[in-house]
């Protein structure tokens, strides 16, 4: 039997020290990591349990929120300030997984979760460049209904599975990280990488660094929501999801934030669509046209070409929901 260690960190500094060397993984709720260890995808020599570290949710001076990395997904979604001020974040979290898993999963772990690509998870039966760099990608010619339509590479077409992260991208969250070299802050929209030549590298975290907290500013949006489209009504990963926030002024779009899930290796912030929409009317047609601009570079596969149109119609429906207009 391989030796295996478990330790529980009492402070962030202690966690960094315990995880130094890179052979131990940080353990949050375990909903993804424990499963991947059982499947043989992850093979750490030990675990550093970080669930006892700060998970507080507190208001910042500017009317924003700072959420400790160990906060449970369910605690964030249930928090009165999240529900009142960031409906897209509460709804995104509530759209993810099941109540049991949301009770276990931490915010830091949600950010760090791995793709649910079945070829990535199939150690014995499939080639995967993310799991075993250079081995090939069986998803590209396989069952790719759940895979990326934009930002993919010949090496990897996996999607990021998180719902929460899609809302955090639309809200321009900042990820506070710490490591032996000190602390720094990474914009959420940059936190996850596109696969390129190195699909095994998924975030901007350096070895030995860990997520400490997530911070969001006071919401600039008068209204916001999250809509998720999936193969069954609940407890399934997204085919396409949309997090969107909107503020109107004199019948024109003043502020807008849009991010999409289920279509890329990272939450896809739709800056081109936002630019096309700003200053114009909030109509479903305008939103659908703007997303066509955003997805001009999309390269869908035989199994997921439907996602382009589905994303457009989902964004159109979200526009109707946010603007109260069906024109």
């Amino acid at each position: 039997m391989m030796p295996f260690t478990y330790s529980r960190a009492a402070s962030i500094d202690q966690a960094i020290e315990m995880a130094a060397g890179g052979r131990s993984h940080l353990l949050g709720g375990g909903t993804n990591l424990v499963d991947l260890m059982r499947k043989g995808v992850e093979r750490p020599s030990g675990l550093v349990d970080v669930t006892a570290l700060p998970g507080t949710i507190e208001e910042t001076g500017g009317g924003g929120l700072r959420i400790g990395a160990a906060a449970r997904n369910s605690a964030v979604a249930a928090h009165p300030l999240v529900r009142a001020r960031y409906p897209m974040l509460a709804r995104a979290i509530l759209a993810g997984a099941s109540a049991q898993i949301r009770n276990m999963a931490t915010v830091g772990g949600n950010l760090m979760q791995r793709t649910r690509c079945v070829y990535f998870q199939d150690v014995a039966g499939a080639r995967c460049n993310k799991r075993a760099p250079g081995s090939g990608c069986d998803a590209a010619g396989g069952f790719n209904r759940y895979h990326a339509i934009i930002g993919a590479s010949p090496q990897c077409i996996a999607t990021h599975p998180s719902d929460m992260c899609v809302a955090l991208a639309a809200l321009d969250a900042r990820i506070h990280v710490a490591g032996a070299g000190g602390a720094r802050t990474i914009p959420m929209v940059d936190f996850h990488r596109l696969p390129g030549e190195r699909p095994d590298l998924e975030t901007l975290l350096e070895p030995g660094e860990m997520i400490v907290a997530v911070e969001i500013d006071a919401s600039p949006f008068a209204r916001s929501t999250y809509r998720k489209v999936r193969d069954r009504a609940s407890y399934a990963f997204a085919l396409v999801s949309v997090a969107a926030g909107l503020t109107m002024r004199a019948g024109r779009i003043e502020k807008i934030g849009i991010a999409l899930g289920g279509i890329a290796a990272k939450p896809w912030r739709a800056l081109r669509a936002e630019a096309a929409l700003r200053g114009g009317p909030a109509t479903a047609q305008a939103f659908e046209a703007a997303l066509a601009v955003e997805l001009a570079d999309a390269a869908p596969l035989p199994g997921n070409a439907f996602k382009v149109g589905l994303a457009q119609r989902t964004l159109g429906a979200v526009c109707i929901e946010l603007s109260g207009s069906d024109r």
Binding site: L27, G30, V34, S74, Q100, I101, N103, M104
Partner: peptide, 27 residues
């Protein structure tokens, strides 16, 4: 399923429902 997909292993920890298949006993 023993992989967090079915809920058959649901128990309560400090009164909250969790999946015992994905919880390490030591936690």
């Amino acid at each position: 399923c023993n992989q967090g997909a079915c809920g058959a292993c649901t128990v309560l920890v400090d009164g909250e429902r969790v999946l015992s298949c994905l919880t390490l006993a030591v936690q």
